[in-house]
Design a protein around this nucleic acid. Structure first.
Lengths: 198, 198, 198, 198
DNA sequence: CATGAATGAGCATTCATTCAT
DNA sequence: AATGAATGAATGCTCATTCAT
């Protein structure tokens, strides 16, 4: 009966969803949820306004689903540090460089938008409590402790050190995410001075 | 009642303007130009909606005038480093601490909003070209060169060092400006590691 | 596998049409033409959205065709009073009870919707002029006159009596059609007081 | 300071609110909450779309406030029967005639719309539980009991009699409210047969 | 100078209808 | 015949701006 088999339909749906998500990520990251216009997302995705609503019930749902993905993605990025070779400092440098270069910039920016803009859906606020800064700090704690014991990293409260490192990294990502050429993105080596033993 | 003379009228006008600017700075810095509502600014200033338009022709003009002020203000803040006592490194630390603590945060945030948000008036974009990052780099160049010669500051291209320092500082200001408790504001001492000689 | 012959196809087509009409009647009667959504009708009929348009050119056409059927149906219902046994009053009571109980309620409701809602197609308005209240009055006139002559029915202008009886009956159908439990449906015996001789 | 004194402003606000309510009552009563368009209400009231929202936060709030008023109004109308002269039957006839003639028709229709349409705000549903049919039955109970004791009214459960009377009355109001000339509004005397002793 | 009522353009969302498969 | 993806026009609501007082 069905003119397209299930598999084909499923594939179309998935492709469209990804296409929309990619467009929405771009727009949301740059503009925040309030300034981002659904029409802009539709245009970026190359589809009609109405079709957005076949795939996502609302702007809020679309935003929320992206934030969830971004959170998971950023967690995975940090976690990947444990699969890298080298000493703790080398691995932190590699992680830093990866984050700075990576095309994951929009994800960082989205998370920032979600944390600081108005008009953020309730559900996103709940997600944010799950993925607080502490979560990320905990994740990096073993690595930093190892680095301190090896004498590679600066001394002091490791949690504070990590929180500071992450804040600076986030800040750098954020101010560079809009493509404004006002700021200059620091090199990973320079940021290492923040955490390396003098 | 006795009619007010011109001078008195002028003074009232100036006071009102400052009152409005203070309110607008607060609101713009927190929300960005698009999310900030004129009604919110009026309410914060304790005046009526309509009165805003006696003093500023439009939202854009109000925003632009604030950005101009913020630019001048931030320039003055940087310039003040030359009036401070101590070695270059000590003076940079003092400047950093001042910026991080100071209530000038809204000005920084405004500049960031102006640099990265949508809906920014053309005139603001022109101002931004005047006050590019280079302007600030030039301003701090003598101090950093002195610090490098004294062996207090890290070696390498001083312009790059300054640009990196300013970017990190801006990033930290930005992510903390919305009062979101997600991030942790680093202490000045920690940021000094970025620029101090190891 | 064997291709269906024309007759079979025709039969399938007719069955589908009936299926759709049944679903549409339900939805239109409950919601009115504007609130009824084509998607709701499709879902109720258990078919896809698009298939509706193979059988009915538009929402308006579907609605119109239903109204036509409802008109004919209600006319037949009234006409059936002449096939009933008993005195005029007994027959009117039987007719009343039948209408109140019958599942023909949706048809009545549809006629009401057509008569009173917005967004009703032009063609429906034309049909309504054919089947005005007068049509129904004419239809019942012989029966009521017989009842008056037999001394069973209230005296006075029989046309007015019938019109009043039909209006009350319609009103009762309408307020009870949405399943709202706010109103109470009167029993046939009670309504008989309207027309019976005291 | 204020260019218009409080009283004048208050008066303007009140007039506008009444103007809007009158327009909205007309439109809501005729179309129901979903089909009624805010633009239609604005046009009927002779004001701009936006101004509606100075006076009522939303379509729902406007609708709700009207329903509340309608409920109170209808209650008062029924209650007024106790201030009338004459025997119970005479008073019921007077009440009936008043309701049928009165321009309160839109109020009845609005209550009907609220009871039977889709898209009715939650708050309205709560109000409806306060003002159920039972409320009205209770209100008329003493009068009907008195009428039954005086032998003027039909015998039987007085609550059922009242509920039936109110349902018929409501039905008649509803089918006549749209100005469709299909139905004929019965005279009060005819409706009295429903409740009068034979 | 000061107020707040009034306007209208802009955006999120819904839904009848079309069309490729 | 049948599906459901795709379109776009219509509508509720917000907000910068104007204007009568």
């Amino acid at each position: 009966m069905a003119p397209l088999n299930e598999e084909q339909l499923h594939q179309i749906r998935d492709e469209r969803k990804e296409q929309i998500k990619a467009a929405a990520l771009q727009v949301f990251a740059r503009k925040g949820i309030l300034s981002a216009k659904m029409s802009m997302i539709a245009e970026t995705a190359g589809i009609s306004n109405g079709l957005l609503y076949h795939y996502f019930k609302s702007k809020d749902e679309l935003f929320t689903s992206l934030v969830q993905e971004a959170m998971a993605e950023s967690e995975a990025a940090l976690r990947s540090v444990y699969d890298m070779p080298g000493t703790p400092l080398e691995r932190i440098r590699a992680l830093t460089a990866e984050i700075l270069n990576e095309d994951g910039t929009p994800y960082f920016m989205l998370i920032h938008q979600a944390a600081t803009s108005d008009g953020v859906p309730e559900q996103v606020k709940e997600i944010q409590q799950q993925y607080s800064m502490d979560t990320y700090v905990d994740m990096l704690l073993p690595l930093f402790e190892e680095g301190q014991q090896a004498g590679e990293l600066a001394e002091g409260d490791p949690r504070e050190l990590i929180a500071c490192y992450l804040s600076v990294l986030s800040g750098v990502m954020v101010i560079n995410s809009n493509g404004s050429k006002v700021y200059q993105i620091p090199k990973a080596d320079m940021l290492m001075r923040l955490v390396a033993r003098k």
